[in-house]
Structure formats: C-alpha cells, structure tokens
Design a protein around this nucleic acid. Structure first.
Lengths: 344, 344
DNA sequence: CACGTCCTGGAAAACTCTTTCCCAGGGTAG
DNA sequence: CTACCCTGGGAAAGAGTTTTCCAGGACGTG
C-alpha cells in the first residue's frame, strides 16, 4: 500500500495459502477452492489492497483485456458518435479501450495495428471507409489476418469486403431512398458533392443516388458531380467550385453530413438561401446536425448503435467461422433544408 | 510468421548471439553493441518479422507505453477536440492511448484509474471539471497519489486544485471579458445558464461574469440565473424554464457552448429571434459552433492545443517536484448571436 | 612486462502471474 | 478390505522481456 506494489504472492503468504490457490480464488478458474480458503484469500487481498498486474496476466494468459478502436479523426462527430457506442459496450464488459487515430494514413493504421498486436489486444474495431485501392486493401487484409492468427478478433464498421465481421450501412439503398424523396419534392436537376472518388462509402452513396435517378428517368450532368475531401472544408471548397463554374441544379446532395455542413456555410457566404435558392441534403445524421439552420435533410444512421453492434460482434467469442455482415438501413429524415424547387 | 509469435530468443538464435545482446540491439539500451552484431540482429529481426511482446516488456521494465485519457463523454465536441490534441502528442512519441469515459461518475473514474494502474500506464490525463464536492475531490486526490507512487505521471485539464500538473482556462477572466463586451453593446439585464451549481468550471465562469457586471454597477437578478445539466439538453431545458417563468433580460449567457446551442434551439422552438429578441453568448468555441445560425458569440479556448499541452506536461519526465499550472487565456469572439439590445 | 581499466558479450536472475502436474486424503465400489 | 477415483492443495514450470553480474580480451600506463 505504501510505495510499491502488492503482489499475489504477498496475498497468498498473508492468507497462509499457496500462490496457486490465491490465483484460483482471485480470478476464479475452473478449479474449486474450499469456501474457507476462499474467504481467507479475498479478505487478505482486500486488506492489502491487492491490484493484479495486468501485464503479468497478459503474459501468462497470452491475451489481454485491451480492445482497439481505429478511427480516422476522433474530433469528427461521425467517429466520436460511433466511439461512444463502442465504449458503452467495452466498459460493460470491463475491457479497456485503446484509441488509435489514423488520419486516413495507411502507414499509421499499420503502426497502430502492430501496437495492438504487440499488446495482445483481444479485439480491434476498424471504423470508417478505406480506399478502393486494391493494394492497400490487400495489405490491410493481411494485417487483419496476422491479428487474427494471434488470437485477436476483428470487426469493421462501414468497410465491407474485408475478412472480418462487419457492420455496414446500406449506403446504396439509403441514397436511393433519399433520391426518390427529393424527386418526389419535384427536383429534376441535381448536383452532388461526391467526396473522394476512391472511397468506397462515397462511391456507394453516389451510385445509389445515381441509380435511383436513372430509374426515374433523370439524367445526371457530369459537370454537377464534384469530387473533393470527405470533410467540412472539402464540402465548402467543392461547393464554391461548383458555384463558380455555375450550375442549373435545384438540389445539392452531399454524400455525408460534414460535407453538407460545409456546403451550407459556402452557400451562406455566397448569399444563397437554403432551401429557397437551392435545397441541400446530406447523409449520416450526425448529432450536430439538428442545430443547423435550416436543419438538414439527411439519411439517418444509428451511429452509436452501430458502434455498439460492432463491439458486440468483435467480442462475441462464441462465434467462429464465416464473417457476419450486419447491414444497417438508413432512414430518410426530411427537415427544412429541402423544399420543392421554386419555378425557374 | 506463421501462426505463432516470433520471440526475441528466436531472433537471438537466428543471429547467433545471446538473448541479452539481442535485447540490447532491439531496444537500444545504454550498453554498446558492436556494429557487426548489431547488423546481424536487426537483419534477423527483420527477416523473422519480430514484434516485441509489449506485456513482457512492461513486466520487465515495470512501465508500459500506455497513456490514459479520461473524459466525461467522447461524443461531446469539447472533449473530442481535446482528445484530438492529446492523440497528436502521444502518437508522436509512439505511445498508445487508452480512452476512458466516465459519464461524470466518480465510481467509473475510479475503475478506469485502477485499470490504468494495473497496466502500469505511463501517464494519465484527466479532462473536464469535477465537482466542488470536497469528499469526492479528496478521493480523486488519493487515487492520483496512488497512481503517481507507482511511477505514473498525471496531468489535468480544467480542474485546478488537484495534486497534478494542470492546464486551466482562465474562466473568470474570460467570462469577465465577455461580460464587459456585452455591456459595451448596451446590455444591462442578463440571464445566465449557469450549469450545475457544484461544478467548478461552471462556477468560475458564473463568478467571473457576475464580478464584471458588479464592477460595472449592474446587478444580476437571482431569478435570471438558471442551474441545470452541463449539456445541450440541459441548456434547452433551462432556457424553456427561464422563458416559462418570464425574464426581462436582453442577453443570455450560457457558461458553455453546448448549453448555448441548446438554448438557441429552445429559443427557435419558442419563435424567438436571436439576436433580435435576445442576444446569446457561450463559452469554449467548440468547432461545431461556426455552423450555427446565427453564429455564436463565445469565448474562444484553444481546445486542441490544451489537450496537446496537457499531454506534454504529463509526458515531460524531466520535471519533478511542484505542480505546474498552465493558464490558458480565453479570447472573446464576437459573432452574430449578439447585438445591441433593441429599445424596450 | 605486469597490472588496472574499459569494453563487449553471455549467463542467469528477476518481473508477476497462470496452469499443469503431482500428491495426499477421503469416499465408494467391488 | 483393497483398489480406484475424485477432490482440493501445493510445487514448479512456463510466458518473453530487461538487467545485473561476471568473464575475458584489448588497451594504456608505469
């Protein structure tokens, strides 16, 4: 209690039992220990203020109570919402969460994954879409395999196609439903902030939206599709570019909410009214959205639940074998940022 | 490389050196190793794909590369911004960040702290104001002492008075500066969303604001000070309550931005115009603020830098002895949510 | 040339647990 | 009554590092 550590050996000695017995009492192994000794050991542990040395346990068991969570940017509300769901689940189970931020860098991702492997983390949860680049996906798949071979478990959010359990929003259907809703409002000419062209999530949403338009007999002008960074500033920038080039669109769809937020800021700076001059819609329903004016129409994803579900998948030790995919439907939430187009 | 682990012993054998030498090469101890052996060992490690077992290292060194970060709620942009700053610093140093969320529960805080102790974490950073309750502060102080006795380092953000290095915003001065600014605009009657009455940060801001008003010869009506939860919903709720009771105030100060955000939503729902019917100001300058309409007047804190600074303090191993306090000034940022009061 | 010093490498202890193996004692079945 | 099994306890063998201690060789000095 003073300055050093209380070891299990000291507890055993204090209780007058062997080290083995003390260990069996404290962690509750399969072996039985008589009630009498059990009481003595717990009393001694209590009295001495025993706290197990986690690294010694990890070394002996070859498995730790650490769970990794990899996100691109923790200050992005999309990721922090998912992170909140993950923490809820891990804390329930007494596990310790390790947060790694990748900044979308494959190298950093690799470093964090290696660190988790080195710590014998029990599981890792990868959040956020990766690129569609074949090579970096293959490398990630190898890292995942290495992690799993060491006894770790893996789950992904928003990145289907990897060799792991996955929680994946139904991007295409959600975007299609949104498109139909907007067409229902009377819109015929759309502009799209499509994000990076090599990002899977971005592309699925674009394709779903585009597909639904095609099905409704509406063409999408190539000049109305802007690619750019998947961030608020990317949305701002893309919108300015779009407006500088000029557009005939009556409705702007940003494939995620942070870009839509940037778009709204750009339009405000340009003196354009939403939805009067242009309707705007996003995707994700991040919590900060409801405080925008006008409130943003979007496709709602249950972000916290998705994080929680991913953690459950990753920590469900019973399951072995093929990879499960949980598809999460998106729900169109109509708010004030979209309205029927005003007559031209 | 196949299914098991490569140990340092295997690397040593492969390189034809002793375990001790291999260890000295890989981690770079104080001891010299000849260039010849050095090359052999690194080559073998590379070839075999050696990855150190972190728990074994922790056990042997009695210190790990883990750094704890305790926040109340990671999905709150205030905390996630600070977290982003902390991660930047820890990743630079190759450390692994453990994220603990407390939900403002003292028990959970204790549990996380114990887990970090058990893992021999190198440092822990406590973010967010605690209560002004003497007893729970004393308990926290004891936990901190225990952590430090085990060789860990501690830093706090926004909670001065604890036995640890601290990064603390100058709440009183910032709030006072804001008050002077608002008085300068012509406001004389204020309402305040003061947060929980036992939260140190909240009280400092309230007191600073109040003090500046007094200095300007302005009284603060007791009925215009609403206490409530330190969250968006708390701000919403408090504002509704305030308006239901009725107020003569021309300006509303919420002691943090998330409450101000809730206040704006409540006013919108009540059909009141900001700043036309009521000016609103907050405190913190969380990133999401700039996308509100009208944009919120606030006191800007450099949140990411504060996180980074706290991490630096916690990881500055050179420093021993008395506790350093870094005071961070807040800067009034005037935006559209405040304007001179309209004639009564 | 002898002796002390410095430097490099290796053997082995230490770190704190978990778990296997072994043993004693008591109960049960034949 | 003996052989066998079952239960509960302890000794000891790991788990993979770091680090201390010791040995031997090179080198410098008197």
């Amino acid at each position: 209690m003073d300055s050093g550590y209380v070891t299990l050996e000291q507890v055993a000695e204090h209780a007058g039992v062997s080290l083995a017995t003390a260990s069996r009492v404290i962690n509750g192994s399969t072996r039985q220990v008589s009630q009498r000794l059990r009481d003595r050991v717990t009393a001694s542990a209590q009295q001495l203020g025993y706290l197990a040395n986690a690294s010694a346990q990890t070394l002996a068991r070859n498995s730790s109570s650490l769970v990794g969570l990899l996100v691109h940017d923790i200050s992005d509300p999309y990721f922090s919402s998912i992170a909140a769901g993950v923490t809820r689940c891990t804390e329930e189970q007494g596990l310790v969460l390790v947060l790694g931020t990748t900044g979308r860098s494959v190298q950093k991702e690799g470093r964090v994954l290696a660190a988790l492997r080195s710590h014998r983390a029990k599981a890792v949860i990868l959040v956020g879409s990766r690129s569609t680049d074949e090579e970096s996906n293959a490398r990630l798949a190898r890292e995942i395999e290495a992690f799993r071979r060491q006894g770790g478990r893996v789950a992904c959010v928003s990145q289907p196609g990897l060799p792991a359990d996955t929680v994946s929003p139904d991007n295409a259907s959600g975007a299609a439903a949104l498109a139909r809703h907007l067409v229902g409002l009377g819109h015929r000419r759309f502009a799209i902030l499509a994000g990076p062209s090599d990002l899977r999530t971005a592309r699925e949403r674009l394709d779903g939206f585009h597909g639904a338009l095609s099905a409704a007999g509406i063409a999408l002008d190539h000049n109305n599709v802007m690619h750019g960074a998947f961030t608020r500033d990317g949305g701002y920038e893309s919108t300015r570019r779009l407006m500088t080039l000029g557009t005939d669109a009556t409705c702007l769809f940003a494939v995620n909410d942070v870009m839509a937020t940037g778009a709204m800021a750009a339009l405000r700076d340009l003196g354009m009214k939403v939805p009067g001059d242009l309707s705007v819609a996003g995707f994700d329903d991040i919590p900060t959205l409801r405080d925008l004016t006008p409130a943003l129409t979007t496709v709602r994803l249950p972000l916290e639940e998705m994080g929680e579900k991913a953690a459950e998948l990753a920590l469900d030790v019973d399951h072995e074998g093929d990879f499960r995919v949980v598809t999460v439907p998106g729900e169109v939430v109509a708010r004030e940022s979209t309205a029927p187009p005003t007559a031209p």
